[in-house]
Write a protein that binds this DNA or RNA. Structure first.
Lengths: 103, 103
DNA sequence: GCTTTTATATCGGATATGCGATATTGAAAA
DNA sequence: TTTTCAATATCGCATATCCGATATAAAAGC
């Protein structure tokens, strides 16, 4: 997640955040993003992100015998997410109020 | 702000949000982003965004006689911001908690 | 065993973003 | 008036993103 929070490409950030909450597969992630965004990201969008996160050591495959690969976040990934979250909150500082209004 | 919240390019979103809070110039915005991000975005980053927002009718130049151009948000810009904010909150739903922890 | 379906993987390409460099403008200072 | 400086403006470019298409693989159903 080299350039996370450089103002473009928050996808890997979100994906890492999602996997942090619970182990997820590529399909799980596509589903979840469909719920949030309205549109389901294409396979060519999601899988390369998973690969990159995996190669960076931020997530790790959980073997469950099935075709579907679930990923879990690693220690390293948690640290990365923490740092990215800090940045995110600084950048989108104002959004705090919006969330409060809404939730 | 055609593609706001398509997961890349949140800069125009932030800029619109900032200008909504108070009238700002390009320099003001660069300063504010430096505070938040750590690095000051280059002129080539900020001014084209202002131009685009202006051409879309989301912001409007405020004549103050000075060299510095202040922009204010327009009615149309407010609507756009509102819609974008709604999307933002849906996508980054989880971040609500983070903000609460932090602020 | 064969077909269908579902999930994963990869590749090429279009796109827009953000930067650096440079030019221009206008105000203030000298 | 000229110089200096700060803010704005524009241009070309490298880059990463995300998509669509396609391929592979594995499970399920028949």
């Amino acid at each position: 997640m080299r350039n996370c929070c450089d103002m473009r490409g928050f996808l890997s950030f979100i994906v890492l955040k999602l996997i942090c909450k619970r182990n997820m597969s590529g399909e799980d992630i596509r589903q979840e993003l469909k719920k949030r965004k309205g549109s389901k990201p294409s396979p060519g969008t999601v899988y390369p992100v998973l690969k990159a996160l995996s190669e960076s050591g931020f997530i790790q495959e959980v073997k469950n015998g099935a075709k579907e690969k679930k990923y879990k976040i690693t220690k390293k990934g948690k640290n990365e997410l923490k740092a990215a979250t800090r940045k995110f909150c600084m950048i989108f500082y104002d959004m705090k109020d919006e969330f409060q209004k809404r939730c």
